Amino acid sequence: MKTFVTYFHKRKEEKKMIVVKHVVVAEIPLLEMVESDIDHQKLPTVLFYHGWGSCKESAMVNGYELAKQGFRAVLPEAYLHGERKEGTLNEEAYMEFWQVVAHSIEEFPTLTDYYISKGLTDPNRIGVTGLSMGGITTCALLTQYPSIKTAVCLMGSPAPVLFSRWLLNSSWAEGLNIDEANYQAELEQLKPIDLSLQPEKIAGRYLHFWHGTADNTVPYQPTLDFYERVINEQPEAAKHVSFTSTKGAGHKVPYESSVEMATFFAKRL
Rank of each mutant, 00 (worst) to 15 (best):
A73Q: 07
D113L: 02
S147V: 10
I28C: 10
L89V: 09
E260M: 11
L131W: 07
L142P: 12
E200V: 01
T3I: 11
C153N: 09
D37K: 06
V128C: 02
G70R: 07
Q221A: 12
H9E: 00
P192M: 07
I105Y: 00
E200P: 00
L168K: 10
A93L: 00
L75R: 02
F4P: 03
T246R: 15
K16S: 00
C55Q: 13
A102H: 06
Y64H: 09
Y145W: 11
A93P: 00
A26G: 02
L111E: 04
G127D: 07
Q184H: 13
L197H: 00
W52K: 08
E92L: 06
T244A: 07
T223E: 14
V253D: 05
E107G: 01
F264G: 03
I178G: 01
V74M: 05
E83K: 08
A238P: 11
L75K: 05
G248V: 02
K191E: 06
L190T: 07
M261I: 05
I38V: 14
T150E: 01
S104A: 10
D179Q: 09
K267W: 10
G204P: 01
F265K: 10
T45P: 14
V100M: 15
R72I: 13
E233L: 01
L167A: 11
L80Y: 13
Q99M: 08
P219A: 07
R72N: 10
N90H: 09
K149Q: 11
V61F: 14
F163D: 01
A185D: 14
I148C: 07
F265N: 10
Q184M: 13
I105E: 01
E107M: 00
Y49H: 15
C55V: 05
R205A: 02
P29W: 06
S258W: 15
N90A: 14
V241K: 01
S164L: 10
V34A: 09
R84L: 09
N90D: 15
E77G: 13
F108E: 01
L190C: 14
L142D: 08
E65N: 11
H22N: 05
D122N: 11
G53K: 06
W210L: 04
H208D: 03
S36E: 13
S258H: 10
V74F: 01
V259M: 14
